[in-house]
Design a protein around this nucleic acid. Structure first.
Length: 493
RNA sequence: GGCGCUAUGGUGCAACGGUUAGCACGCGGCCCUUUCAAGGCCGAAAUACGGGUUCGAUUCCCGUUAGCGCUACCA
């Protein structure tokens, strides 16, 4: 048995650092999940950091949605949320340090010069190669250029001219990049108004914060692999020890393109709304890009926690497969101990206004539990409990026209249902076998197949063509309701 | 265009030099059956291509191709 180390300041520290430019999407959720699993497994600390340094794109109101989604997934954190927009001084100080030690320089180039603009002009020092547009790697301001009046400079990192920068990735292994390929990236935006400098850029913010927050493992999307050498350079310039990097592959749409709105729901909160069980969603997400190394797939959170390791993380981008997610959901709906499922159903019925307090305790609870258990093999999403199962929780349900069409075709149906109502009303002890016998006896005397009567009855008492086995359904509904519904139905046909 | 990453059925993962290439989703069929699910059984379906290395490559190396990523005063 492994002993459980106490949570200490020098233990594992990870962070999830979303940017509030959109909702929490599947990829972000999985990154958060991996960080969380890793932290839990190592008895480490998880930090939530909001990377909102781009005032233009940032939408503060989206932060709550991200937090809601994480909470729904059961992902919690020990520190934060911290907001980068409130830590500006820290980044400026770091940029100044780089400036002072010659690791950075003031750049007076107009932003447009680089942003998809005139590469040839900006890239004076860059050797042309190939036929396409050359890329700016070395800014012409890097070795000092006279300041331009009325122009506020940005601060750029002075990337070494030669050599390589390498790092060890826990997932992708040893990586080495040529410094020649790394551009003199911006650390601090130029100032506006009174301010001499603006907000931090991504590279500076992450590194400064990861140092300040003593992050030991950076687990993030593989889209950051190319950013990592820049960050390694920054760690060195700031005199800090870099953390362990672990890049996880991206999640793609069914066409293997980057996931976007047109692939359907990518917002995690939409899955909550649709009625997926968070643990099923978590199980699905964990297995997209990670494997425990064996064939078992139904891994409850407890098992995920026991088995998660960075070694099991795949290096290939994965395609989001909604049918598989739905399969996981139905598996959880069926396999979860009933007492774990009940609260979810209770929540659903409260949302739809069908909930009755009498189901909270005692005999009511027992009935509720049995009924949910009866229903669950046929449920795909939580809202199904209040839609097609409505007749189990309310007398205010409607008869599905398609079911009527299919099972009430025979002209004898109304009369049969009326007779069945009488026969069932006469039962002294209401249970599965008694109602079964009564129905079959009637079918025999009436000269019809039991199936005809069974199908017609189902539609009459639950309004649907699909329901649990009829006599179990009858027991769940109770004698009085079954008799009444049969009489009502026979009168309306 | 440059640089980087990746490559097992349609999809997600196994096989980490020697297997009839395994499991799961999805798909088709059968069984069960009062409906629909669930469940059980069976089936179709893969090592991107080309070179090496090796007695032997899904596995190691190189190239090609394809997909993705980075190449912003976005993150």
């Amino acid at each position: 048995m492994t002993e459980t180390p106490k949570k200490t300041a020098d233990g594992v520290r990870v962070r999830f650092a979303p940017s509030p430019t959109g909702y929490l999407h599947l990829g972000g959720a999985r990154t958060a999940l991996f960080n969380w699993l890793f932290a839990q497994r190592q008895h480490g600390t998880m930090i939530l950091r909001i990377e909102d340094t781009d005032a233009e794109r940032n939408k503060p109101e989206l932060v709550q949605g991200i937090i809601d989604a994480l909470t729904w997934l059961g992902i919690d954190w020990d520190e934060g949320p911290f907001y980068q927009s409130q830590r500006t001084e820290l980044y400026r100080a770091a940029a100044m340090k780089c400036l002072a030690n010659g690791g950075a320089f003031l750049c007076y180039c107009p932003a447009e010069k680089y942003a998809g603009g005139d590469y040839a002009e900006a890239a004076q020092d860059d050797e042309p190669k190939g036929g396409g547009p050359r890329r700016v790697t070395r800014c012409s301001c890097r070795d000092g250029k006279p300041s331009i009046p009325d122009t506020k400079p940005a601060i750029r990192f002075k990337v070494p001219v030669g050599g390589t920068t390498k790092f060890l990735d826990a997932v992708f292994g040893e990586r080495e990049f040529s410094n020649h390929e790394i551009e003199d990236f911006v650390l601090l935006r130029s100032g506006r108004g009174e301010e001499e400098f603006g907000q931090s850029m991504y590279q500076l913010g992450v590194v400064v914060d990861d140092i300040d927050m003593r992050i030991t493992h950076v687990i993030r999307g593989a889209d950051h692999i190319s950013n990592t050498p820049k960050q390694m350079l920054l760690y060195r310039a700031l005199g800090a020890e870099p953390p362990v990097f672990a890049h996880v592959p991206l999640i793609l749409g069914s066409d293997k393109k980057r996931l976007s709105k047109r692939h359907g729901a990518t917002d995690v909160n939409m899955y909550r709304t649709e009625g997926f069980l968070p643990e099923a969603f978590r199980n699905f997400l964990a297995l997209l890009g990670w494997s425990a190394g064996h064939d078992e797939q139904f891994l409850r959170t407890k098992e995920l926690l026991e088995k998660f390791s960075l070694e099991g993380v795949s290096r290939t981008n994965g395609v989001f497969d909604r049918p598989k997610l739905e399969w996981f959901n139905t598996q959880y709906l069926q396999k979860l101990p009933i007492e774990e499922l009940l609260p979810h159903v209770e929540g659903e019925l409260k949302r739809s206004g069908l909930w009755k307090e009498e189901w909270a305790t005692g005999a009511g609870r027992e009935w509720f539990s049995k009924t949910v258990d009866l229903l669950r093999p046929r449920i795909r999403l939580l809202p199904d409990f209040s839609t097609w199962s409505k007749a189990f929780f309310s007398d205010d349900f409607t008869i599905d026209p398609a079911a009527k069409e299919k099972f009430w075709k025979d002209p004898k149906v109304p009369e049969l249902l009326a007779k069945l109502a009488d026969a069932l009303a006469a039962i002294a002890e209401w249970n599965h076998d008694a109602s079964d016998h009564a129905l079959r006896a009637l079918a025999e005397t009436a000269g019809v197949k039991a199936g005809l009567l069974i199908n017609a009855t189902r539609v009459a008492i639950v309004g649907q063509a699909v329901a649990p086995p009829l006599f179990d359904t009858m027991v769940a509904l109770g004698q009085a309701r079954v008799v009444k519904r049969l009489r009502d139905a026979s009168g309306t046909i």
